[in-house]
Design a protein around this nucleic acid. Structure first.
Lengths: 248, 248
DNA sequence: CCATCGCCTTGACGCAGATCAAGCGGGCTT
DNA sequence: AAGCCCGCTTGATCTGCGTCAAGGCGATGG
């Protein structure tokens, strides 16, 4: 476990391929300058812990590359993932000094960080940034509620299928290939992390993956590379309504 | 199922014993006037559906009296509660025309409603209101994440114990009695609604309630009235860390 | 006073997924 | 190239909770 590397490249905010760019797009130049001055980057290796629950957190951040997860752990070691952060997702709470959840890099991760207190000050003076923060939080809340349905009521097989569609949908390749043919991507999580996401054991995850493979719903090339020959077939395994998503 | 009664009492905002009062406390008088003009009340009986998922919702609201729940339903009828609204909780999304979840009155409910579009306009001009909305949303997100741990990793008995502590803590009587003696309250949910909350069947809920009663952790007076002789003993059944909660 | 209905309890049984255990295979170190 | 470790798979067995079924109890109404 090496120390995270910290660098301070003075790139323009627009160079971050992350969601806070949508904020900056509406920022005045002096606001951008302010953002630049409190911004820096951190990198973590797969498996590293970014923060422990209870630790002071002096920054908020956007995920630039890689995948990080929020998990809760019970005294006896039972673990539940409660957040999965993909590129462009936001990490941290401007109003909160200490983290409430363990944050772990599930792949190599690069964060674009903002020092928390100056970021908080900026929120007071730039209402459109806090509006954007509200939108993002509401999206997270919706995701959490989908997740609750999954945890409370779906079978192991439905959980796996739902998880795969969630990951597939956020893959950059998905937009081009959907409906046209197969979708392929690498799983950014170990079987154990999937188990923590889904409220299962890693053995059950493994068995259900094998089951979906045996039934031709997915192909497995190596342990992590997934090919979905027909996205509709996978969708049918999720238990979800089949009609299109509802817009805002 | 009778139609909801709608009344338009011109009470002052400060008379609502609800969380948006905290907003209004900082409002200028012209903002208060604006709020008054778009405000009205609705009442629902226990069991009534307030809105169906997909319905247009032309208002947002605060719960004044009673308890309402948000639920998701799968095609085959499996149901999961994803939100429980107690007095002072907020219902609806200013930016969202259609509801994403079924909203049901689990007891008789009174809502303090604001017409959505004017409320939305007010948000643009009064930043502290959207800040307050952000705080409330973040609280909901934390609650959802606790809930996910419960759904994914806790045993039936732990789920019931956790649920009872959650309800007990929000009972007005709790503040006075904790540590001093027993806590007593009425369950605002049927066994079936508890099952939907906890990701269980109503039979399992019933059995586990009987189990906790048999072991002296709770007393049951009638079907709904709960007496907790020693809150610590109940806490030990939840599986949660026993140290005090973390502050913001 | 009895019939009905909604909500709840309890019992018997089965199964999905947890637990325990063994082994595989690819990449790393030595 | 031998050995090891880590992530993963698969098998055998166990068990907590779901399912199916029968009744209890209190409120409401005829």
């Amino acid at each position: 476990m090496s120390k995270p590397q910290i660098s301070f490249p003075q790139e323009q905010c627009a160079e971050c391929p992350i969601r806070h760019r949508a904020v900056c797009a509406r920022c005045e130049s002096d606001e951008l300058e302010k953002l630049e001055s409190i911004k820096y980057y951190r990198s973590y290796e797969a498996g590293q812990t970014i923060v422990w629950a209870g630790d002071k957190m002096d920054f908020v951040a956007s995920v630039v590359h890689g995948v990080a997860s929020l998990t809760q752990t019970m005294e006896d070691g039972r673990r539940q993932m409660v957040g999965l952060l993909l590129p462009s997702d936001f990490l941290g709470r401007p109003n909160r000094e200490a983290a409430h959840y363990d944050v772990t890099a599930t792949t190599d991760v690069q964060l674009c960080c903002f020092r928390r207190v100056p970021f908080l000050e900026m929120l007071d003076t730039t209402p459109h940034v806090s509006q954007r923060l509200l939108e993002m939080t509401l999206d997270e809340l919706d995701a959490a509620r989908e997740w609750m349905l999954l945890l409370g009521r779906k079978t192991a097989r439905e959980k796996i299928a739902s998880f795969l569609t969630i990951i597939a949908r956020r893959e950059p390749s998905f937009q081009n290939t959907v409906g046209v043919g197969e979708v392929a991507f690498d799983l950014p999580l170990t079987r154990e992390a999937m188990a923590d996401y889904l409220g299962l054991t890693l053995e059950t995850v493994s068995r259900q993956m094998s089951g979906l493979k045996r039934d031709g719903v997915i192909r497995l090339e190596g342990k992590r590379h997934i090919v979905i020959p027909d996205f509709e077939v996978l969708m049918d395994e999720t238990g979800d309504d089949s009609d299109g998503g509802v817009l805002d």
